[in-house]
């Protein structure tokens, strides 16, 4: 059972990492528009990025 002294602190540290990542995501506006991002996968990426013609 002594392994619990190590495992639980590790679990808590992982929890803190998860929370840090979530805070970062909130800061980057990732929760502002939840309707849209699901569709992004449908659209192809640009075939070429060089045709900037304005």
């Amino acid at each position: 059972m002594n392994v619990i002294y190590v495992l639980i602190p590790i679990a808590v540290i992982l929890l803190l990492v998860a929370i840090a990542i979530f805070f970062w995501a909130v800061k980057k506006d990732q929760f502002d528009d939840l309707d849209r991002q699901g569709f992004n996968i449908l659209f192809d990426e640009d075939k070429q990025d060089s045709d900037k013609n304005g």
Partner: peptide, 21 residues
């Protein structure tokens, strides 16, 4: 998507994010 892609073609436009909601 259309608005973002079209505007990103403009040289001089640095970034655009469209909020649909």
């Amino acid at each position: 998507w259309l608005i973002e892609k079209r505007l990103l073609k403009i040289s001089g436009l640095k970034s655009i994010s469209v909020n649909l909601v």
